[in-house]
Structures are given as C-alpha cells and as structure tokens.
C-alpha cells in the first residue's frame, strides 16, 4: 500500500510539471484558439535564459524574476510579429507556423548554447519529508507548491482584476469585447505573454529533474498535450487536473503494468489523447463546441 501511495506521490510530482506546461497551452488556446506547438520550446528557451543569468553570477531567485520578465516580453513579441499575420487563417496554416517556430526556437537554442547538456541548479533543498513510510522529496513538494501558486495567481488575475475581466471578455467573444472598448489585440498579446511566463516556470521546474538541453521539453510537450486534452483545451483548471491525472497514470502504468515498463510510458499520453478525443472530445472540464455549419 505504501508503495502504491509512493507511486501516486511521484506521479503527482511529474503531473505538476505537465500541468504547468498544459496551463500555458490552455492560456493561448483560450484567447486565440491556437494550439501552440512551440510552447515547450519557448519554455526551454526561457530556462536557458535563467541558466545564463545564474551562470553570470545572479542569485537564483533574481535570475528567475529576470527570466519571467524576459519571457513575458518575448511571448508578447512573438504574438505581435509571428502570430498576428496569420490570425484567422486556416488551422493548417497556424499549425504549420507554430511548428516552424518550434523548429526555429529549438535550433536557435542549440546555436546559442550548443547541444551539450547543462547543469541546472535545483531551487529546492535536497532530502525528503518522511511520514508513514512514504517519502516525499522537497523538490516534489516545491513543484506542487509552485504550480498551485501559479494557478492561484491566475485565478486572482482572471476573477478580480480589470485586465483579467477584459481577457475573459476577449476569450468569450472578441467582436463584442472590441465593441465595448477592450483593446483586443493588446489583450491577445498579453495572453501570449502570460502563457510564455507560465511556460518559463514549467521549464525552470523541469530543468533540475531532466537535463537542460535544447530537446529537453520535447518529451514533456506530449504529456502536456494529453493533459490539456483530458482537462479540456479551454479550461485552466482542467489543464491542471488533467496534468496531475496524466502524471499519476503514467507513473502507475510504468510501475505496475509489466508490458509498459519505463520505456513504453510515452504510450500513455497517446492512449489518453485518443481515448478522450473519441469519447469526450471537449475533455473533462471543457465546453463542447457548438458549430454552425
């Protein structure tokens, strides 16, 4: 039993990371209806910025603040420069543009920082909390805490601030939002900035666990997609819940299903994506899209 609970805890730790990246995906999807295939790569790039700051002698938390600010600005810039021209274009065009962004950011990071693996400092202390035969490492606790904090901050932003209200209005109906005087373009850019910031958090959380290299997020991205699909692409709460479920499912499948083992774990998100899309395409928390043919 303790072993099972231990696996669940580990799963939650992994799931929190998927949740944070899924949150970034969902933020962009909510506002623009775009699934950003480059989200993971943007997070990886942000992590490199954090690494560069730390390597230049900055204390970790200051480096984090700088990284988040740079990511926010970067996200807004990308929306303005790269996404704006194809807004409203067919889905195929948009997917291809974000895939282009994916390739470009990945290669750019490789060009600037080489493809060699870098050591990334862990912001949380080593060791673990022991209770009732279960050990929870501080780093897992830290990851869960940070994701909860990000979720809480986003909730406050969306529910209790003027900017958040405007963002919700744009997400619901851009045309009406524009009519009541909300700067839709600026809000969309803000959404991309926020998503890039949340993505940067997830990158910084992942980096000490995996290794920092340009392909770091490639593996995480597919889990984040599964999380967002499961929770519903238009629900931030769903993304976090989905992330945790995916993390636990993946860990349990790896531990208890002999055939899957550790190497076929990546099949779990595929099964989840396919299953959700076939049985409940809107996800657990999403709204079903009503389409006028």
């Amino acid at each position: 039993m303790a072993g099972f609970v231990q696996q669940v805890v580990e799963g939650l730790g992994a799931g929190a990371i998927y949740a944070s990246l899924a949150l970034a995906l969902v933020l962009i999807y909510q506002f623009t209806g775009i699934v950003n295939f480059a989200q993971g790569e943007l997070a990886m790039f942000s992590t490199y910025i954090a690494w560069q700051c730390v390597a230049a002698g900055m204390p970790f938390w200051l480096a984090l603040v700088v990284t988040l600010a740079v990511s926010f600005a970067g996200g807004m810039l990308i929306e303005r420069v790269i996404i704006r021209p194809v807004e409203g274009a067919p889905e195929l065009t948009i997917v291809i543009v974000t895939v282009g962004l994916f390739i470009f950011v990945n290669a750019a990071a490789g060009w600037i920082w080489t493809f060699l693996i870098k050591d990334f400092p862990n912001p949380f202390p080593g060791g673990a909390l022991e209770a009732a035969g279960i050990s929870v490492s501080f780093s897992t606790l830290g990851v869960l805490g940070v994701v909860a904090l990000v979720m809480g901050l986003l909730y406050v932003l969306f529910q209790y601030t003027r900017i958040g209200l405007g963002m919700r209005a744009v997400a619901t109906n851009p045309a009406s939002a524009r009519l009541v005087g909300i700067r839709v373009g600026r809000t969309l850019a803000l959404g991309w900035g926020l998503a890039a910031t949340v993505g940067a958090v997830s990158g910084v959380l992942v980096a000490p666990l995996l290794f920092l290299e340009p392909n770091m997020m490639g593996g995480v991205l597919i889990y984040a997609f599964a999380a967002a699909t499961l929770g519903g692409f238009d629900s931030p709460l769903g993304a976090v819940t989905g992330g945790l479920i995916v993390g636990v499912a993946e860990t349990l499948a790896g531990a208890y299903v002999g055939f899957i083992g550790s190497d076929l774990k990546v099949g779990v998100p595929l099964v989840i994506i396919l299953g959700v899309l076939l049985l409940r395409p809107q996800g657990l928390f999403g709204r079903a899209a009503v389409e006028r043919a």
């Binding site: 790269i82 021209p85 194809v86 065009t93 291809i96 543009v97 895939v99 282009g100 962004l101 994916f102 390739i103 470009f104 950011v105 990945n106 290669a107 750019a108 990071a109 490789g110 060009w111 493809f115 340009p214």
Partner: peptide
C-alpha cells in the same frame, strides 16, 4: 556553418513561406 543552422533555416523558411508564398 553550425549544427543548428539547418533548423534555424527550416524554421524561418517555413514561417516566411506561410506568409508570403503559401
């Protein structure tokens, strides 16, 4: 030029092609 150069060229070209020459 660089190990990463093909990726940079691919990525930029894809985006550019989608804009100016679909």
């Amino acid at each position: 030029v660089n190990d990463a150069a093909p990726g940079v060229i691919f990525g930029l070209l894809i985006i550019a092609v989608m804009y100016v020459a679909p």
